[in-house]
Simulated assay, not measured.
Amino acid sequence: MNNLNLLVVKHNQMESERILLRPISLNDAEDMYEYTSDEETTRFIYEQHKDLDQTKNLIANYFVKEPIGKYAIVLKESNKMIGAIEFRVHEWNKSGELGFTLNRHFWGKGYMTEAGKLILGLAFNVLGLERVFSEHEVKNSGSGKVLIRLGMKCEGILRKNQMIKGVLVDSAYYSILKEEYLNFDKKEQ
């Protein structure tokens, strides 16, 4: 089997028509703070950041410390970072886990779907994975809509599965298999 981490590192930059996925750096701190400090953007995932130093610490200790599969979502036209998308590979069962956050000022414009398609292309066409999955807090219907647009199917609800802001919440669990992706991708063209 190929070294999957090496392949992900070789694809640490990907682009589509409107966006670029690239590693996150401290230069992204102000753009990231714009959405990590926004209660509406973060309400289903984590406590909002109180100051720019908190965001810089997150970048240094999470995104830069272990950067594989963690991408800034950047608008090509303005070079503005508008969110982050993360992809964790699980070699033992040839699967990958997708997670994302998007600045609410850019919701409803298709950017997250565009970023997700780049990740699914990496997962199935480059890494040769068999399955990609994701989950979101059940009250966060916007994330569910993104996953459906990516061709994923809801497999069910995991009760009290995630700790968000100190409260156990239910998660909607989605996945897409390689053969479903290949058929879905053909329909999209």
Score class of each variant (00 low, 15 high):
Pro23Tyr: 12
Lys145Ser: 10
Leu102Ser: 07
Asp38Trp: 05
Gln189Pro: 00
Lys80Gly: 04
Ser175Arg: 03
Gln189Gly: 12
Leu158His: 00
Leu6Glu: 14
Phe44Pro: 01
Phe87Met: 10
Arg149Gln: 11
Ser25His: 11
Ser171Pro: 00
Asn27Leu: 09
Glu86Ile: 15
Ile85Phe: 02
Lys139Ile: 02
Gly69Pro: 04
Gly99Leu: 05
Ile176Cys: 08
Met81Pro: 01
Gly156Pro: 00
Glu91Tyr: 01
Tyr71Cys: 11
Trp107Tyr: 09
Ser95Asn: 02
Asn161Ala: 13
Asn79Val: 05
Val126Ile: 14
Ile59Arg: 10
Phe106Thr: 09
Gly151Lys: 06
Leu177Arg: 07
Tyr181His: 08
Asp185His: 08
Lys153Arg: 14
His136Lys: 09
Leu118Glu: 08
Leu168Phe: 10
Ile73Ala: 10
Leu147Val: 07
Leu21Asp: 03
Thr101Gly: 06
Ile19Phe: 04
Ile148Met: 07
His49Tyr: 08
Pro67Thr: 11
Ile119Met: 01
Tyr111Asn: 09
Glu130Cys: 15
His11Asp: 00
Asn27Thr: 09
Ile119Tyr: 01
Arg88Asn: 13
Glu130Tyr: 14
Glu180Gly: 13
Ile68Trp: 00
Arg131Pro: 00
Glu40Leu: 15
Leu182Ser: 12
Glu188Tyr: 03
Lys65Met: 11
Glu155Met: 11
Ile45Val: 13
His90Asp: 05
Asp38Ile: 06
Ser143Lys: 09
Gly128Met: 03
Asp51Phe: 02
Ile148Asp: 04
Lys70Pro: 09
Gly142Phe: 02
Ala60Cys: 12
Glu130Gln: 15
Pro23Gln: 13
Lys10Ser: 11
Thr41Val: 07
Tyr174Thr: 01
Asp38Ala: 10
Arg131Tyr: 00
Gly110Thr: 11
Phe133Cys: 11
